[in-house]
Each structure stands twice: as structure tokens, then as C-alpha cells.
Design a protein around this nucleic acid. Structure first.
Lengths: 104, 104
DNA sequence: CATCTGTTTGGCAATATAGCCAAGCAGATT
DNA sequence: AATCTGCTTGGCTATATTGCCAAACAGATG
């Protein structure tokens, strides 16, 4: 058996963190500038507790960092290279033929 | 609200397809050569029905293609750029400081 | 200190996911 | 046709995820 489960579990955990519409949106927003929880909440229209939990998932995965200033918590993308990955997803969406190559 | 839910749902669906240890392993294996279901099953040690369902998830997401030859079904990576994405995940794992840049 | 804003946490219900087994289907082979 | 191998599908249980509400907590401000 060639399958090193732990190796792939670690990586899958990180990928899973961005495998949700709201969290994916946050990753893109937080790539350009930092936002506090309330601002992000207004953007997506979910309950603030839901947003807080999504941000915790991203933080735990090492994708974003938080910075508490006053009574606000600002989140920011920690690993900008995640964006390149997202370009790759566009390739999957746009490719029509089999075994297509894409921009990234 | 700036959040275009459908746009992100489509992309999250694709990412979710590779956000599982076994499927991530398959993506890497199938990038180098095609394998049939039985071969992949032997590699991971799960029930063949479980493996078949994982492959269906990858296929539905447009990440792999299948090719039936005789009574075997061969799977192959359809969008090799997915591999670049995985390099990015290594960056997340290895980065210690905040807002790190990585290779990709 | 009381209160207001901003955030997190706990708990719950609804839904989705992952694994196995059993059964079904499709080509091969005899 | 019977059977064998290879794969998929259906069904089930266990677990994980996602959303909300309510409550708790932390700084700010009055």
C-alpha cells in the first residue's frame, strides 16, 4: 500500500478549509486587504457567529491570521499563494476537452 | 452584499472534491499515469465500492476522466494544473511567520 | 459600574459525507 | 449459458459540517 494516510490528511485538512463558498470568498477578499468580522459578516449576510466560525476554520488551517485591535478582530490572508491555486480552479471550470492544460 | 454565492459554490464544489486524503492521493497518482479502479483500491486498502465513489466525485468535479477498456475502467487526471495548487498547500504547511510567500 | 459594540463559544437541528456490505451490471472466458 | 473479474449503485450507520439562536466575553464609552 503506497498510501501515506497522515501525509494526505494534513493536506486535505488545509484544502477543506477553503472548500466552502463563504470561506473561499473570504480568502479572496482578505488577499487584498484586511477586514474585521463585522465587515465580512455584512458582505455575506450570514449570522456573525457563523462567520466567526468560518474564520476560525481558516485560521486553524494556517490560511489567515487575526489581529485584535480595540474590540475588533481583523483578519488577513497569511499565504497569498493560495490565490494561484484558485486560478487553477478556473482552469478546471473552463476546460472542455480531456487532459486540458490551463494558465497556471 | 458583495458575495456572489453561486460563483463561489461552483468553485468550492471543485475544491471540495480534492479535500479528502484518499482523493488527494488519487489526484497525485493519476497525474503521472492512468490506473484502473482495482489498482487504486489496492493502493489505499479501502473497499472497492468506496474507491469507486471517490473516483465518481473527482469525475463529477471535472478533475479526472474515465476510459472503459474491456471490463476495466481507467482513470486519469484531466487538469494537470491541479498539481501546482498542491505545491501551494506545501507553502501553507511550511510557513511559520505571518503573511509568508511560497514557491508557487 | 452600566452599557454598548464587536466577537466568540455552546448547543441544537438539518444536512452532507464516508465507510462497509450486498446486490446489480458489463465484459471476459469457459 | 454459466461463470469469473471488474466496477457501480443502493442502502445503511456513524460521523462531520453548517447554519441559527442564545449566552458569554472583551474593549469602548457614558
Amino acid at each position: 500500500m503506497l498510501y501515506a494516510e497522515k501525509h494526505y490528511t494534513v493536506r486535505a485538512h488545509i484544502i477543506k478549509a477553503i472548500a466552502h463558498p463563504v470561506r473561499l470568498f473570504f480568502v479572496e477578499k482578505l488577499a487584498h486587504q484586511e477586514y474585521c468580522v463585522r465587515e465580512l459578516t455584512e458582505m455575506v449576510g450570514f449570522d456573525i457567529s457563523t462567520v466567526s466560525k468560518h474564520l476560525r476554520v481558516l485560521k486553524h488551517a494556517g490560511i489567515v491570521v487575526d489581529d485584535k485591535r480595540g474590540n475588533q478582530v481583523f483578519y488577513q490572508l497569511r499565504t497569498p499563494c493560495i490565490l494561484n491555486f484558485l486560478g487553477c480552479i478556473e482552469g478546471v471550470i473552463n476546460s472542455e476537452t480531456s487532459t486540458t492544460t490551463c494558465a497556471c
